[in-house]
C-alpha cells in the first residue's frame, strides 16, 4: 500500500474506523476538559463550591455561574463551529461534575473525613443543557450568549435549591440561631479555614428585603453573558487547525 492509497478498503470499514475515531476523540476530549475545567473551577470557585456554609444567596449565586460558564462556552465554540455538535456545554459540565465528585468523595471524605453532605459540588447541568439547546436551535453565538448566558445564571440557584434548601432549615444552638449548613461548618473543624474567611452575605444589596437571590442570579446572568462571549472566542482561537498540516 502506497502513501497515497486509502487505509480502508470499503465504506463499511471506513464507517467503522470513523466510529472508533469518534470514541477515541470523545474519550480524550472528555478527560482533557475534565482536567482543565476542574483546575480552573477549583481556583476560581474554590471554597464557594467546597462547603455548604459558603453556598449563600448572594455571592455563591453570583460567582459560580460566572466562573462556571467559561469552559462550556469554549468547548461549544469548538464542537459547534467545526462539527455542528451541540453538546459542548453538557460534555464540559459532565466532566467537571465527575471530577468534582471524585475529588469530594476520595479527598474530602476518603482522606479527611468531611461528610459528603457538607462538601458536595454545585450542579450546573440545567444551565448547560439550556445553553446547548439554545445554540442548536438558533445557531447564533450572540443569541446563545445573551439568552443562554442569562439562563445559565438564572437556572443555577433554582437548579441547586432542592439539595441546598434542607440545609437552610434553622436551628437553635446554645442560644444562637443558625442554619444546618452553618452548623456543619462549625461542627466539622477546618483548621485552615477560619470563619472570617467565609465570604457570605456580604455586599450592599439590602433594598430587596429577603429576596436577594433572584437579583443576584440576574446580575450573575448578565456577567455570564460577557464571560460567554470571551470564552467562546477563546474556544474559537484555541480550536484552530492552523497548525495541523493538511493531508
Amino acid at each position: 500500500m502506497s502513501a497515497s492509497q486509502s487505509a480502508v478498503r470499503s465504506r463499511a470499514e471506513a464507517v467503522k474506523v470513523s466510529r472508533t475515531f469518534d470514541w477515541l476523540i470523545l474519550f480524550t476530549l472528555f478527560f482533557v476538559v475534565l482536567g482543565g475545567y476542574h483546575v480552573h473551577f477549583m481556583l476560581t470557585g474554590g471554597d464557594w463550591d467546597f462547603w455548604t456554609d459558603w453556598k449563600d444567596r448572594r455571592l455563591w449565586v453570583t460567582v459560580l455561574p460566572i466562573v462556571g460558564i467559561t469552559f462550556p462556552a469554549a468547548v461549544q465554540a469548538v464542537l459547534w463551529w467545526r462539527y455542528r455538535l451541540p453538546f459542548g456545554a453538557v460534555v464540559a459540565v459532565l466532566g467537571l461534575l465527575l471530577g468534582e465528585w471524585i475529588n469530594r468523595y476520595l479527598n474530602f471524605w476518603g482522606w479527611t473525613y468531611f461528610p459528603v453532605n457538607f462538601v458536595f459540588p454545585s450542579n450546573f447541568m440545567p444551565g448547560a443543557i439550556v445553553l446547548d439547546v439554545i445554540l442548536m436551535l438558533t445557531g447564533s453565538m450572540t443569541t446563545t450568549a445573551v439568552v443562554g448566558g442569562l439562563a445559565y445564571g438564572l437556572l443555577f440557584y433554582p437548579g441547586n435549591w432542592p439539595v441546598i434548601a434542607p440545609l437552610h432549615v434553622p436551628v437553635e444552638y446554645n442560644g444562637m440561631m443558625m442554619t444546618l449548613a452553618d452548623l456543619q461548618g462549625y461542627h466539622y473543624v477546618r483548621t485552615g479555614t477560619p470563619e472570617y474567611i467565609r465570604m457570605v452575605e456580604k455586599g450592599t444589596l439590602r433594598t430587596f428585603g429577603k429576596d436577594v437571590a433572584p437579583v443576584s442570579a440576574f446580575f450573575s446572568g448578565f456577567v455570564s453573558i460577557i464571560i460567554y462571549f470571551l470564552w467562546h472566542f477563546f474556544g474559537k482561537w484555541f480550536g484552530s487547525t492552523a497548525f495541523v498540516e493538511a493531508a
Binding site: 432542592p162 434548601a165 437552610h168 432549615v169 440561631m177
Partner: peptide
C-alpha cells in the same frame, strides 16, 4: 417543579448566618 416541591417540603428556611 423541583423548586416548588422543595419549597413545599421546606417552607421555613433562613439565610446563612454571618
Amino acid at each position: 417543579m423541583s423548586m416548588a416541591s422543595t419549597n413545599e417540603s421546606f417552607p421555613i428556611t433562613t439565610p446563612l448566618q454571618a
